[in-house]
Design a binder for these strands. Structure first.
Lengths: 160, 160
DNA sequence: AGACTACTAAGGAATGGTTCCGGTTTTTGG
DNA sequence: CCAAAAACCGGAACCATTCCTTAGTAGTCT
């Protein structure tokens, strides 16, 4: 379902960036996760093995990866924090506004959509974001997130 | 090109919310703008005619409109502020990461895309966000924003 | 291998969009 | 017109993200 991932480390190297243990660890954490992590969740994960890690370093590495197009940003899932996408194959994202998780959804229409964008603006699309918001089952296991049973709204947030 | 807009004021009333001069003014500002305004830009615009207006009221009104589905949120356009969408007809948004403007793009593929989402999660899609990022001409008039001439990257921001 | 240089990490402070709080005013239904 | 509920307002608070400065390190060239 989810397509294979070419190495983020290799992408950084190819783009001429230096490799550091921190970057390597962040890239590896990214490439082994399929839950659209936030900067903070990556920080927590990598910090476990690399206690001196700075949150700033995580942000800076994510920024670098964004700029070379190795990852994309999905924005928030109702939690006002940025979720990142490592799967750069065109697909739809489904975000739950209650549990703040994001699932990938394969799409056959998305290719046509991107073709329209390419034609409209030329060949320089930097990144795209296709996210639909709903309410899922709020299962404890993200794998169970299937968006079948909506629940009621929480209190006021403009969200993002 | 851009489809007509049903009244936001009417939508609020129908949903059982009280009408105030502030809300009316904010709704009217929203419905006469096609540039995907931010909370702050709406605040500035409405404040001109309503000097006691509070930014909090703008946020609260936007939140209310979001919750009844009368508008949607597009997230940032590289400026770390939330842009709102008043055109609720399915379409693609093109955001320029340099000038931070967002243009609508009609799409024939988007219907199929939304159908896929509906089928995947049932009928309870709360909102969607289809945004592609690029660099436009940086024309002073938003109407000239046609995304034809990409320019080089600015310095580091993770953006949103 | 050694040294140089530009790039990178760290961490603490700053930023700024958005939200919260409480007190006051306004709208709406009866 | 009154009372209750809803909405407004200003300022303070929040917190994800960014900035700044110093120290450390990867890559390069000899």
């Amino acid at each position: 379902m989810v397509t294979k991932r070419t190495g983020l480390v290799a992408a950084l190297k190819d783009a001429g960036f230096r490799m550091t243990p921190q970057r390597t660890a962040i890239c590896e954490a990214l490439s082994t996760r399929f839950d659209h992590p936030t900067a903070h969740s990556l920080y927590e994960e990598v910090k476990a093995d690399y206690s001196s890690l700075s949150l700033t370093t995580v942000y800076q590495t994510l920024d670098t990866l964004l700029r070379i197009g190795a990852i994309t940003s999905l924005g928030s899932a109702g939690d006002d924090t940025i979720h990142f996408e490592v799967n750069t194959n065109p697909h739809i994202n489904l975000a739950c506004l209650t549990c703040h998780r994001i699932c990938d959804l394969n799409s056959s229409a998305i290719e046509a959509l991107e073709a329209e964008v390419q034609q409209a603006i030329g060949s320089k699309v930097l990144s795209g974001r296709v996210v639909y918001y709903s309410e899922c089952l709020e299962q404890s296991d993200p794998a169970d997130c299937r968006f079948n049973t909506p629940s009621s709204n929480k209190k006021g947030h403009v969200h993002e």
